[in-house]
């Protein structure tokens, strides 16, 4: 069942992003920035967490999930370290993704050449 919800919710988030881009004539970069910030805000309001529990990867894989992950990480870190957690929590939680992107990006740039 989670698979169906992952498809529906993940697809819907992408549709909203597509409509925002087409209607407001935004660049993809602008849309991504808005969506990562929206994910953080909805995460803070406790809404995005419910969506993740419900739709799994459908909510976690799109970019708002990235903002949500960082907010959650900050929550955890603040509990343990207080104010310092505001600085360390976000990146700790997102470190897997960011580091993967840097390392794989570097490797891909060394191996592959752009084609078209």
């Amino acid at each position: 069942m989670t698979f169906l919800w992952a498809f529906l919710i993940g697809g819907l988030l992408c549709v909203v992003a597509q409509l925002v881009m087409d209607w407001f004539r935004m660049t993809p970069g602008q849309v991504l920035v808005i969506f990562v910030m929206a994910g953080a805000i909805l995460g803070g309001l406790g809404i995005y967490g419910k969506l993740v529990n419900f739709a799994g990867a459908g909510a976690a894989v799109p970019l708002p999930g990235f903002g949500y992950t960082m907010v959650e990480g900050i929550g955890q870190a603040v509990k343990q370290k207080g104010a310092l957690g505001l600085f360390t929590g976000g990146l700790t939680a997102a470190s897997g993704g960011i580091k993967a992107a840097v390392v794989f990006g570097l490797v891909a740039a060394l191996i592959f050449k752009p084609k078209s």
């Binding site: 993940g10 697809g11 988030l13 992408c14 549709v15 992003a17 597509q18 881009m21 993809p28 849309v31 991504l32 969506f35 894989v61 799109p62 970019l63 999930g65 990235f66 993704g97 993967a100 992107a101 840097v102 794989f104 990006g105 570097l106 891909a108 740039a109 060394l110 592959f112 050449k113 752009p114």
Partner: peptide, 24 residues
């Protein structure tokens, strides 16, 4: 796929890898 390809985290990877390849 438009945003269907850009919004998921795979699109984030694409956004990092493609300029790195380009400016190799």
């Amino acid at each position: 796929g438009g945003m269907g390809g850009t919004l998921p985290i795979t699109g984030f990877a694409n956004a990092m890898v493609s300029p790195a390849m380009e400016f190799r």
